[in-house]
Design a protein around this nucleic acid. Structure first.
Length: 272
DNA sequence: CATCATGTTATAAT
DNA sequence: CATTATAACATGAT
C-alpha cells in the first residue's frame, strides 16, 4: 500500500533506532524478497550500528557504515514496524533486526517487496529527481513530456523514473486536480500545470499522511510508533474506492476503468 | 469459486 | 536505439 508518504512513514519506524547496535537478526532465507541479494549476506549487519536512513520515491536506504547500506522496497504489501525486544515472530515476517531496545520488522505477505545490500559509498547516485525536490523543475517536466509524448498521463505518473514515489492513488488525485482524463496522451499537456499539481499532491500527501502522527505510547514502548493519517475529505482519495463514490467538487458519480493496467477512478464531469 | 489489491520488471511489440 | 504495452509474480480479502 505504500506511496511516497507511506514510505516516509515506514522509514521513520526504523529510524527510531538510529544509533543502536544490531545484536542479532532473523532472516527467512528462502523468501522472494531476497531475490536480488543472497540472504546469508545480511549476516554482515550483526554488530553494526544503524547510523541513518533516507527515502527516495518508494525506496528506503538504511545506512550502517559509509559503504554499507540496506535498501528496502515495500512492494505492494510490505510493512516496516518496531516491537519490544521479546517480539515473537509472526507469519510473513521475512527480516527482523534486533537491537537491545527493539525488534525492527519487515513483513510482506505478497513478497513483491525486496531488500538489497550495497557496499559502495552512494548507491543512489543516479536516481532521478523526486517531485518534492527543487530539481523537479519546469525544465525537467518539459523534458519528461517531450520524452513520453504518446504515453497516457496516468502511465507517466506511475513511471518511477519520471515521478518517483507516485503510485495509483496519487496519480488519480493529480489527474483529477488537473481536470484531465487519465488516458490523455502526455504530449498534449502543459508542463507548468502538470508540475504544479504533481507538487501539490506530493507535498499535501506528505503533510496529511506523514505529519503529526506519533502514537502516544501507553506501555512504555516508544520506538517507531507512527500511524498513518489520510488526506482530507475534499481530496479524491476519500471517495475513489467507495461504492457509489462521488466527485468531491461536483458530486457526479465517479467513473472507474483500467488505465495503464491499473484500476483508475476519475470524474467524467470534471475530467476529459 | 472468481475477482481484485496504493508495485515492479522481464519481455515483446512498435 | 528509444518508447510503449502487457503478463507474471504470491497471498489474502471480499
Amino acid at each position: 500500500m505504500p506511496e511516497l508518504a507511506e514510505v516516509e512513514l515506514a522509514r521513520r519506524q526504523w529510524a527510531a533506532c538510529h544509533g543502536d547496535t544490531i545484536i542479532d537478526l532473523n532472516v527467512h532465507n528462502k523468501a522472494r524478497i531476497y531475490r536480488d541479494c543472497p540472504s546469508a549476506a545480511l549476516g554482515i549487519l550483526k554488530g553494526k550500528i544503524l547510523r541513518s536512513s533516507h527515502a527516495h520515491g518508494k525506496r528506503m536506504l538504511f545506512t550502517f557504515a559509509p559503504e554499507l547500506h540496506l535498501e528496502v522496497h515495500l512492494g505492494m504489501s510490505g510493512k516496516l514496524s518496531t516491537a519490544p525486544p521479546n517480539y515473537p515472530e509472526q507469519k510473513h515476517d521475512h527480516l527482523i533486526l534486533h537491537t537491545a531496545k527493539a525488534a525492527l520488522i519487515f513483513n510482506d505477505y505478497r513478497m513483491f517487496g525486496r531488500v538489497m545490500l550495497h557496499d559502495c559509498a552512494n548507491p543512489w547516485a543516479d536516481l532521478p529527481p523526486q517531485p518534492q525536490d527543487s530539481k523537479f523543475s519546469l525544465i525537467h517536466v518539459r523534458k519528461l513530456i517531450k520524452r513520453h509524448p504518446k504515453k497516457p498521463l496516468k502511465a507517466l505518473l506511475l513511471d518511477q523514473n519520471a515521478c518517483p514515489g507516485i503510485g495509483n492513488w496519487m496519480a488519480d488525485e493529480i489527474c483529477w486536480r488537473l481536470g484531465i482524463h487519465p488516458g490523455i496522451a502526455t504530449g498534449t499537456l502543459e508542463a507548468k500545470k502538470l508540475r504544479k499539481e504533481i507538487r501539490f499532491v506530493t507535498f499535501g500527501s506528505l503533510k496529511h499522511v506523514a505529519d503529526k502522527n506519533t502514537k502516544a505510547s501507553s506501555d512504555g514502548f516508544a520506538p517507531g510508533s507512527y500511524v498513518a493519517n489520510v488526506p482530507p475529505k475534499n481530496w479524491l482519495f476519500q471517495h475513489r474506492w467507495k461504492k457509489g463514490g462521488i466527485c468531491p467538487k461536483c458530486k457526479t458519480a465517479l467513473a472507474r476503468d483500467t488505465i495503464a493496467s491499473r484500476t483508475t477512478a476519475w470524474c467524467p464531469n470534471c475530467q476529459f
